[in-house]
Amino acid sequence: MSTPGTREATVPTAAALALGDDALILSHRLGEWAGSAPVLEEEVALANIALDLLGQARVLLSLAGDEDELAYLREERSFRNAQLVEQPNGDFAHTIARQLYFSTYQRLLYGQLATGDGPFAGLAAKAVKEIAYHQDHAEHWTLRLGDGTPESHERMQRACDALWRYTGELFQPVDGLDLDHAAMESAWLDSVTAVLDKATLTVPTGPRTGAWAAGAGRQGLHTESFGRMLAEMQHLHRSHPGATW
């Protein structure tokens, strides 16, 4: 498939990789639910969200180089995704908390990118409409689980707490993205706080930035489970180079 007409001579490669890797890795994680989601409707929903993300990843990685080479032949240290998206699916609550944090961020980010006339504007204007459905999906589940049974409440709280430390990285400046990260972060906090409050959940108090926060994925440092995920994702292409359907 060819790349969109928005290709320009000066595509900021670092930014295309950062955003493309976020979309690719989260897409793969969500795809892992195929065959094991709690209900059929959720399996379909998560696969659909994964497909949207994969579409974004293809456009972004094609701006940075050859999409297949970038996805299947890079080593772990060359991936530039934020650590949040590589976190294992965990239980369903963990997946939903990851979706809530990421889709809220991505909608704000793409909303800003869509208003400019940079190399990502065309994709962002299109993708932001898809992301609105992802965020809506995550918020609905956060409400159902948080304000559900004592068991679902406890698990949703645990998931929100566990992933909180990965959210600061999302607002670190990325080379080539001239955005107001501070404004985006404060809008993100407002939005997530409102959903957690409504879901009777407590906004986590752990560190999002500083020494005890996580996150150096944009610099190529990843968490333990990422290597295993990559091995599975890249295995077919590396074992059978050039394989096609």
């Binding site: 060819s2 204007a125 299109k126």
Partner: peptide
Amino acid sequence: VVTVLAPAWS
């Protein structure tokens, strides 16, 4: 056949 993204389909 080339794919164009902008303006976004609705």
